[in-house]
Simulated scan of single mutants.
Amino acid sequence: MEDFAVVAFKYSDSGDEVELVPTCWLQDEETKCSWPNFKNKLKVTKAVKEMTKPGDAWSIHSIKVLAKCRDYNAGRLLARNANNASGIQREGNYGLGRRRIKSTHNDSEDDSDSSIPQQPKPKKRYLPEPPEIEGEEETRCPGSSRKYSAMYSLLTSPSSSSSSSTQMPKAVLRSCLEDALRPVMLAVARCESRLQEQQKTLEMVLSIVKNLKESQTAPPTGPDVSLLDGLLPIKSYVDFEDFEQQINGDCALRKSLACRLQVLGGATVKAAVKNMVDLCMTSGLQYEFNWEGRLGWKTKTNTCKKGFKNTTLCKIMINILVNKTQLATDESEVGKTIMVYLRNAGDRYFGRKRPNDSLS
């Protein structure tokens, strides 16, 4: 059963107006329809959706049923299509909702007034073109606007001295031409200065690239680090004493060690110390050392450890780390870092389970 109907209200002074109404509002074999007297349109829409029963105070209008449907949304679509259809003609200047359509022409004017032509809208005015000098061919001055072309032709033409009395003096024309060319010359000067700066920058970049290529292709110069092959890392204290004697007596071996330690990375002092100590000694040998060579507080026996502070290897490490500008450190900070790293060598070598006696 259809609950809604699309109807056209009939008026004597205007065309039909299409609306969607519930079928319970239809009367007299669907020839008349009740309509609420609400002033608020939202209340009318709510009454249509909820299919409110007609009240006694509602008005009754003559209608013509155009279509029926079960759904409210489908009914609204049918009503909209019926309003836009060409078959529904409206008479008079009335729109939907009995609104009078405003006329675009004034109907009160007489025919004589309508015959008077309307004045056209004022056009956008532009500046007039400059006058051309008779007898002289127009020559465009390079880099200047059109209004200085005649002045340029007067200065460059051979007949400029025999010009008529109506022409401007040559000095005035020259000043005008200089004023016109001044911005162009300034722009050219700026471009030349920027070009020179860019050329200098390009030459500097090319020189840097050339130096980098030469440094990469050049044969390595400096100490031979291959002398340290087979010597590092040191595994026992006996080998450590022999290595100390070698670097004290052999200057080339000492320079090779310093060069090898210097190229090690490390963004902080702690990282640099770790890399150096791990390169030179195993964790088992690190456990036999502490900073002062005294009985450590982590040692569970009465045997003192060897001191690392006065060794040649320690002095080389400290000297390299202090001279690195990116670390910005001093001898005391480096010594403290090495001391802490050697103190925790037992944890790295044995783990958390330490032996009851020291290594022998």
Rank of each mutant, 00 (worst) to 15 (best):
Q119A: 09
D242I: 04
W58H: 04
G87M: 15
D229S: 15
A171L: 06
I247F: 08
Q286I: 03
L231N: 08
L264E: 12
T217L: 09
Y94M: 06
R100Y: 11
K298V: 09
N310E: 02
S332D: 07
E214G: 11
N302Y: 11
A271S: 02
S358Y: 03
V205M: 08
W291G: 05
F350H: 13
K336R: 10
T201A: 03
E137L: 12
T329M: 07
L228Q: 14
E30R: 03
E331V: 04
P54S: 00
E19G: 11
N211K: 06
G284W: 09
T325W: 11
C304G: 05
V269M: 08
A258N: 14
G265H: 07
R90E: 00
Q118L: 07
D16I: 01
T282E: 10
A180P: 01
N319S: 14
S59R: 09
M276R: 09
K124N: 05
E292R: 06
E214T: 13
T221L: 11
E129V: 08
K336G: 09
L228Y: 11
G351T: 13
I318N: 07
I338Q: 00
V7G: 02
R174G: 03
S226Y: 10
S332H: 06
V205P: 07
A345H: 07
C259H: 15
C191R: 04
N310S: 03
V21E: 04
G307R: 09
P117V: 14
S59P: 01
V205L: 08
G87H: 14
K298W: 08
V44N: 05
R70A: 13
K210W: 01
K306L: 05
T221G: 11
G351M: 12
W291A: 06
L232D: 06
N93P: 07
D16Y: 03
Q167D: 00
V21S: 02
Q326E: 09
D239Q: 12
G143T: 01
K43P: 05
D16R: 00
E134Q: 15
S226C: 13
I247E: 03
R146E: 10
F308Y: 02
G293W: 00
S215L: 13
D71Y: 08
L195G: 00
S283Q: 15
A218I: 07
Y349A: 06
Q167V: 05
Y72P: 07
P355V: 14
N323A: 12
T268Q: 11
R90K: 12
T221S: 14
E203D: 07
M281C: 11
L253E: 08
L26M: 10
P233S: 03
P54K: 03
D111K: 11
Q216D: 10
G55L: 13
I247L: 06
K309R: 00
S256V: 15
N211Q: 12
Q326A: 10
V18W: 05
S103G: 14
T337R: 00
G296W: 10
S144D: 10
C280V: 15
M151E: 02
N290D: 05
F9L: 01
